[in-house]
């Protein structure tokens, strides 16, 4: 086992940990995005709320999500540690340093962009994750007509055992569920929260413009045939499409609902 420690303590091993955890977080973003796009469904939040119950009850997903939190924290603090180590490698700074002549700014600002994302995540987890787990969240009852598929919903005043109950009677499906959707919809009525979210998605975009393709270089994947593809996915999928789709959600709740 000693060799693994020595390997991971080397400069290349340290970077490998950043790259691998970063790529894992990229795959998480895809899952998170697909789940959250249900917010845009016109169903009063039924799909999103049942999805939220599934994500917080399924034991396998719970296990993975605690691993995810650990990896987010590791990636963030390991990154900050590496930034401080790298600063030490140049104890006397240049009076003149023309970084833009030889490198893209996103690659030089990864630590700052990452710190912005970390600060955003604290706010994000406090606003939704902690509210859902510990806060007072209302329950909503959805009535779906099984023949027509039409959904109506109302505030549910009674009490149920868990986060969700579902039963069918008279060709109607009743779903009583903890309503995270309304927590999201309420939060995004605040303009400053909408702005904060959109700006944070900007930071995420620029972090991934460099981060995604950089991970592959660290892993040793560098080939003329595939470099453009990897860079393209990093810029267009992770730097443009995913952050824009995330940013659409707060804008949708503030201005289109």
């Amino acid at each position: 086992m000693n060799w693994i420690i020595t390997f991971l303590k080397s400069s290349i091993g340290k970077k490998l940990l950043m790259g691998l955890t970063g790529l894992f977080l990229c795959t998480f973003l895809i899952v998170h995005l697909i789940g959250n796009l249900q917010l845009l469904k016109h169903d009063g939040g039924m799909a999103f709320n049942t999805y939220a119950v599934f994500m917080t009850s399924n034991p396998l997903i719970k296990f993975v999500s605690y691993g995810l939190y650990a990896i987010i924290l590791f990636h963030a603090f390991w990154g900050l540690y590496l930034v401080s180590q790298n600063k030490k490698a140049r104890p006397v700074q240049y009076a003149a340093y023309n970084g833009k002549a030889n490198s893209h700014w996103t690659s030089r600002w990864m630590g700052v962009l990452g710190t912005m994302i970390l600060a955003f995540l604290v706010f994000h987890m406090w606003g939704f994750w902690a509210q859902y787990k510990f806060g007072e969240v209302p329950y909503t009852i959805y009535e779906r007509n099984l023949a027509t598929g039409e959904i109506t919903f109302a505030n549910f005043e009674g009490e149920i055992a868990g986060k969700m109950e579902r039963y069918i009677s008279n060709d109607t499906e009743f779903t009583i569920v903890k309503d995270l959707y309304v927590v999201v919809a309420d939060a995004f009525q605040e303009l400053w929260i909408v702005i904060l979210y959109v700006l944070s998605m900007g930071a995420l975009a620029f972090h991934l413009v460099h981060g995604f393709s950089s991970s592959f270089q660290t892993l040793g994947v560098h080939h003329k045939k595939y470099n453009a593809l990897i860079k393209g996915i990093g810029v267009w999928v992770f730097g443009v499409i995913i952050p824009i789709l995330f940013a659409i959600m707060p804008i949708y709740f503030k201005f289109f609902i």
């Binding site: 400069s11 340290k14 030490k88 490198s103 393709s213």
Partner: peptide
Amino acid sequence: GFGSCTNTGACSA
């Protein structure tokens, strides 16, 4: 005591 690589590409440029 050299730093580690963050793939900025400045070296090659």
